[in-house]
Each structure stands twice: as C-alpha cells, then as structure tokens.
Design a protein around this nucleic acid. Sequence first.
RNA 1: GCGGGGGUAGCCAAGCAUGGCCAAAGGCGCAGGACUUAAGAUCCUGUCACGUAGGUGUCCGAGGGUUCAAAUCCCUUCCCCCGCACCA
Length: 950
Amino acid sequence: MKDYDPVEIEKKWQERWEEEGVDRAEVDESREPFYLIFAYPGVSGFLHLGHMRCYSYTDIIARYKRMEGYNVLFPTGTHPTGNQAYSLSKHLQEGVPEKIDYMKRNGATEEDIERVKDPMELVTYFNEVYIDKYWKKFGISIDFDYFTYSTREDYKQFIKWQFRKLKERGLLTQKDYFGTECIECGPVAVDPSETDLSKGGTAEKQEYTLLKFEYNGRYITAATLRPETVFGQTNLWVDPEEEYLVAEVQGEEWILSKEAVDKLKYQKDNVKVVDSIKGEEMIGNYATAPVIHRDIIILPASFTDPNVGTGIVTSVPSDAPYDWIALRDLKKNHELLKKYTLKDKIKEVAPIPIIESKDWGINPAEKIIHEMDIVSQDDNEKLEEATQRIYKSGFHTGKMLDICEKYSGMRVQETKELVKQDMIEEGEADVMYDLSEEVICRCGAKVVVGKIPDQWFIRYSDVELSEESKRHAENMDVKPQSYADNLSDTIEWFQDRSCARRGNWMGTEFPFDEEWVIEAIADSTLYPAYYIVAKHYNEGNIKVENMNEKFFDFVYLGRGKIAEVSEDTGLHKETIEQVRSDFTYWYPLNLNLGGKEHMTVHFPPFLMNHVAILNKEDRPLGIFVNWWLVGKSGKISKSKGGAEPIPNAAEKYGVDTLRLFYAHSASPFVDKEWSEDEVFNYRKKLNSIWNKVHRMKKIDGEETSVDDYLRSRFYSLLKEVKEHMDDHELRKAASVIYYHIPSEVDWYFKRGGTNGELLNEVAVGLLKLMVPFTPHIVEELSELWGLEFIVNTRLPEIPEDAISTKAELEEEYIKEVKADIKQILEVAEVDGEHIHLYVSPGWKERALTKILENPDKGMGLMGELTRELDAPPKEISRYVQQIFKTLREKGAKGSWSVELDEYDILEMSREFFEEEFTAKVKVYGPDDVSYDPGSKASQAIPRKPAIYVE
RNA sequence: GCGGGGGUAGCCAAGCAUGGCCAAAGGCGCAGGACUUAAGAUCCUGUCACGUAGGUGUCCGAGGGUUCAAAUCCCUUCCCCCGCACCA
C-alpha cells in the first residue's frame, strides 16, 4: 500500500480530468439540467482561503448533482468593474512599496508587476491566477468554456442591453444624490473594508437639519440631529474666539464656521465667502429662531466645535444635557457675564419643556444630570451617554407637549421628520450632510459628502417590481432558513440604487449618457444569463457587433421574428436559434451561492433584475448563503492580509483536506474560525480513510453473521446522506460519510466481519459518496478496483431488501449488552473471568407483547396476566410496573418492536464478548437457571439479559 | 434607531423546527495504555459528580411556567455578535 500523498494525487487527477473534459457541460435534452453559479469575484487582488469556502460548497453541490444524474452547468467569470482593479494597477504604476510587496508575496514576478501596470493587463493577469491557481488547483469542476468577465466588450454589450430593458420598464431615473467622495480622487466608499481609505472607515454619513436664524438680514446657521426640539430653543451657543464666515448660499448670506463652508461647497452650488465675523461680535445680540419665531439670545460657549455641524449650536436646555449644564455654568460665571454684559439678559433664559417621555417626564436634561451626577460640561463621556439615553426614550415613548403648536400631542417619532419637512418648505431650514468622524483618503486628502447632480438610479423602490419579486422570493429555495424568512423584507427595504458613476472606473459605458460608467452592483445581477451566450462568443460563433438589441431580445425574451433578427444582426438563423435554445434549456438558474455579505447587496438586485427583465419562467430558483472563514481577530480580508496564498495552502494541507474542513468543521451558516490544527486533523481523517479503504479491498473472506447489519447500516446512512444533500446540509452529509459510515465498518471488523463481496460494495459506495467533497483521493482509491473517473458515475441505488431494521436492532442489542457488562466490570470489584448472561424468561416476553398491544389498560391487565402466565403473581406485578415505568420514561424501546431470538444472538456473539472482555462467557436460555449463584437471572427482561460476573 | 443572529460541558461546536433511548454527536485539549522508535504518527480507553452490579444525582446564560416528560414549547430577564446601501 502506498502512503496517501495528496499533492501528487491532486495534480494527477486534475490533469486527467482536464484531458478527459469531465467538467464540460453540453445541452442534452434527454437529461434534466441543473444550473448553478457562485457569485463571481471582483478583481481586486489575490483571493484567500475564505473565498475558497464558497467555491468548495458550490463544487460539492455541482458534483453531487452530476452523480444524481443531472446535466450540470457550472460556469464562472470575474468582475473587474469598479475601481479596485484600477486602483491597484495605479498604485503599482506609482510604485507604492506595500503593493509591490503584496504582489511578490503572492507569487508575482517582476515581469508580471511590470505588465499589470496596465489595468486591462491586470485584469487578464488575475483572471489567469483565479483560474489556474485557485479554481483548477482546488478541483472546482467549472466548465471554463463559458468563462467571461465584466469588462470584456461582449459582456458590455449584454449590460447595455440590460439597461435598455430597465429603461423600457421605466426603472431608470435621475435625481440628486449625496455620496461620499475624496476631494482629490472622486467617489469612494466609506466602509471598514475599503482599501482606499487611510482613516475613518467606520464613519457614518449623517443628515443634519440646518436651522436658519435671521440676524441682521443674514442667517446664523446651526445644525441639529433633532429638529423636533426647535420648540425648546432658548439661545444660541457661539464660540467668542472663533472667526466665522459669511457665505453666500442660494442667494442668502449664511453665518457658519470655515470648516462648515468647506463642506457645504461640495453640497451646494456656487457657495461664495463674502465676509467674516468674529464670534464675540454676536454675543449678547438676538437672532430670530425658526418655527417659534422668537428672538433668542446668542451666548458664549467653548464646547462648540467648528468641525461639527456649523460650529454654532442651538440650545435646548430642557432636553439636551450639554445645553443644560452649559447654561448653568454660564449663569455662575460672573466674569464672563460681566465681560459681555449678560447679567440681566441671562435671567430670562430658562429651559422650556417640550417633550414628555415615559422614563423622564418633562425636562429630562436636568433630571438625568442629577441622576448621573454630572458636574462638569467637560465630562464628555457621561454627557454623551446621557444624551443617548434621553434620545432613546424620547424617540420611542415621547409625546410633544401643548406648546408645540400643530405638533402638540404627536409622537416624537412622527414629529421629527414632519418638522424638518415643514421648515424646509418654509425656507427656515436646509439639509446638510456630514460624516460622523474624520475620513481621510489613501491619497491624504479629505473625504467629504458631496452632491452628485442628476445621478442615475435603478428604481428598486418600484412597487410593482418589489411586490412581484417578493412573491417570487416566497417560492424560492433559499438557504439558510433565516435568510429565507428575511428575503422578502430585504426586498421591501431595498431602495433606489445609484447605478452609474463618473470618473476613473472600469465598466460599461452607460448607454443613454456616455459620460457615465455603470457601477459594480448594477452590472452583476443578471450575468448568469450571459454565461450561456459567452460560450458562443468564446467559440467565435458570434462577435461583438452581432450582439445588438434585437439579438438579446430574441435570445433572452423570445421576442422578434428570426428572419428579421438574422438580418439585423448579420448572424445565421441557426446560430441565433441555437443560442436561444441553449438559453431556454439551461435557464432558469437553479442555485446562486454567495457569502453573507451579499444578503443585502447582491442577492436582492440579482433577483429583482431577473424579475424586471426576463420572462416569468426564467426567474432564479434558489439561493445559498454561506458565512465567512475568519481569522483569530476577525474577518480574513484582502485588505488586512492574514492568510497565506492559496496555492501554498493547497500544497501544505492538501486540497481534499481543505475541502473537507470547509464542509465538515462547521455549518455553512456560521462564521468559522481558521484553525491549522483542525485542518491537520482532517488530513489525518483522510489518511485513516485511505488506510481503511485499502483494508476493505484486501479482506476477501466468507459471509458472516454481521453482513446484514453492515449492509443495512450502509444503505440507511446512504439514505440519510441523500436527504441531507437535498437540503444542502453539507455538514450533516459529510458527518455521515466521513464519520458514521467508517465507524460502522470498524464495528463490522470488530465483530469479525470478513465478507469480501460486501466490503467491496460498501467501499465503492463510500467512495462515491465522498466524490463531491474530496474527489481527488477518491479517484486514486477507486483505481484499486480498476475504476476510472468515478466522478462520472452515479450514486449507488438502495437495493430493495438491503435495509433491515431487525439486523440493525440485533447489533444494537449486542452493543447494549456489551456496554452493560463493561459498566458492571468497572464498578464491581470482581475478577471478571466469567460472564454469565441470562435471557429473560418466556413469560416476560409474552407479558410484554400483551402490554404493548394494550398500552392503555395499565395495571388492569394484571388479572389476565396472572391467569395466563406461569409465574408468581408478585413477580408479574413487579415486572409489569417496571415495564410501564420504562414506557413512560423512554417510550417504546426500538428493540421491543421486533422479535429477537436473544439466546441465539448472544450465543452467536459469545466469542466476540470473550475477546472483548478476555473472559469466559456462558449464555443461558429463557428458562435455564441451572447456574445462578448471584441470583441475577430473575432481573432479566426482554432485550436486557441479566448479567452475572465473577 | 431599523433589521437579523446567538448564549450548550476546559475550549470549539451539533442538537432546538416535529418535547421522550440527551449526561447531551463530533473535534480540540488533557490523562492513561498499546505499538514502535519515529511520525505534525497510528490505535484503543477515560474525561459532570457520586457509586464494591448495569444505578443515582446535578446539568444546556439566569428566573419562572406548561407537561407524565423540557437543552428543545411559553413568559420574564441579563449578556454577546452581525448588516444598514453605492462597498465587491
């Protein structure tokens, strides 16, 4: 026997599969198709072992479906759209040392690096890496004849068609959008995983209501997150030391901090600075507050921050702890009051109650400051917490008090949005966006929220589309259940989504406005439909210029007359009809697999675009979401590194080992922490199966008494595997295949099983079940039987008479007796050289039958039983009670439901017990009490023989 | 805030839908043994407590309840994690 050498085996079989073309998918009308994909990767750099988890799951399902007899289509592509590939290429051009190091670490040569400074070359380079070093290396059974990627010209034709169809359905629209952008580089995502940020990835975009206070023909502006509190305004807070600017905005003059002007410039047109004004100049004066139209006083404060909002704060001391404490401090600060001659004026400034909440009543700020014992306005941490607590309780349980004009009595929740809208309509307020913390681009410039005028959107908010999609989602096969329960809500929540950008991005030119490039989510929704066409493009049957609107209309929608389409596209009728019939054969898509990050990003628009564009019968049927592989300190990520290159890992651990690790170490639906020790453990597991299968091949003996058991168990477990696989419960299936079945084989050997024919049958059956998970080792092992390309075979059928409950229960019985003997030997202080087994007397068996037939009669059976049975009534009574107790506690034991000849079974396995316990074993028949020094025989009951050890 | 997922033995992790052979799979770790002299071995055995006879007690975040029977169902409560949009 050779040793198990994964590296050699995996290379060998991957080559042979490729030669043989076992992954090829051709239309075959006689077979049912099964079409599945995984969410193709964005071309962003090297992938890691986390990605391989999803690809492995997809492959396991693909291979299993093939072995079930389906004609499986499993294509893939890549997705370079967006700026990730582009910016990596740019960084290499610039010679950024970390990026060069990153390339080298992952096996790129100097020539490679030189080459990929051209973004298009970078895409080609990574396509090769993904295909050769990842997918092929992992034995993923993809048919690469269908390969395509989203920046190829043919793919772009498809995307343009898709957008024409969206427009046709009225699903495209234009409106202003406020998005995050670097002031140097343009749009950038603010996201913790974003590689183009050097700071502030966790920042949130916030929408402030910008309140306008009339002041000498100008407006002092103050930003707030709580517009509903305007009714409680008592004063403004201004930093006397700060130099504020006067800016012309929308024909008005606004007073605000320099920093705020800088931000506003990106959000409003023609913002011009016309003047400046020192904070202290305003102190003690009055400005007219919005909504309440009262003149409120401007007071000095030091806690205002020019970076937050406008640098000027409106004060609501009743509800804002900061304001309350600042006001109190100021009232005590005689020096300051004197300096600005506020002594008399400030007396009038007092909190005005506006909201009543369940927890805090009215004037919550004052109450919470006392309760939390906050003494200083510099105690930021406590004040922040206090603000949060009040806000939370106010938002949910608060009601507006009577002074709040038309909003009196309304809930805070509703008032908030309403007040804001009303003020904006009246021209008393505006909207300003800001980030919750400072965000800096990789280039060193600031990231701001900027206005993008006339941004294109896909109208996912469309009611009809949402409803249709939701209805379809209800009937899809979605795993896991938690996501299935959620998908409809996610679709409902899914709002209009911007679908194009300007700037340096790779992607398809927007067909209605060439300045725009379609962005990455929007061009990756309908693509499974395109693989089928891509194959024809790859084979040269169709060219880019043939792929016009009529062509796709015909192929995807069955629209148009073939003669016209042929003329319009310049393609032969047969070609077009061939593409169309391929599409109708393979579509709809059966399963789309992707990581959990896609739950609210890719899957909803994937589904909705299908619903919006394709015919009803072509809507996708299933979604499978897998969770992540994580490192010790969180997600394994491209940006943070942390994982070794995939090809190295493949050789270090073995591909089959890794695949088994993915499949078995955790449910697909939880995050799994990477653990090298665990991976090696799976290597050992495969090693032990390797050895076991060799042993099974070698042993070639006669039939034995345990054959029925092994055969029955094997097929019972096979049935279980099928059930699990039908539910995509990969882990449970793997658990049966790699643990339960081998342990049944072990038991068979232990019990003296030697039947060569049966062992061959079970071994080959086991190998077939292993194919989807660990195909390489299986091919190698199946050579022992002279089988070639076992991956192309069908799963074993379950022979009609193979499953025998009786055979299984007999062994179960032996296991129980064995466990009982063992326990006794552990506890009892005896030598244990002789073991006596007493089968329960005949009358107990008969009584049991009677009881099981009349389970409701209870002790009422006693009379009947004493009459019929030849045993002392006292013993019968005790026994019957015992049986009822067991029935009540544990239900009808399985072995009670069939007849077993216990004496026979024990006698047949006497040798086994003798070997197990190195003891002499004697079995006594039902009414044989010829030797019973321990007086144990009477304890025997059916399926539980009495035991005496000495 | 909105939406979702969890808390199971030293650790990781099944089970929970459909209550009952559940003291609770599997793995890791730990302990003991076998085998060999090398391998990241392999194979047994044990790993809640007590117990001179196959038993008993306690146990699945905490507290209550339903039931003949609860890790599983219901209520209350504490704690942890994730997604929220132009980011693939």
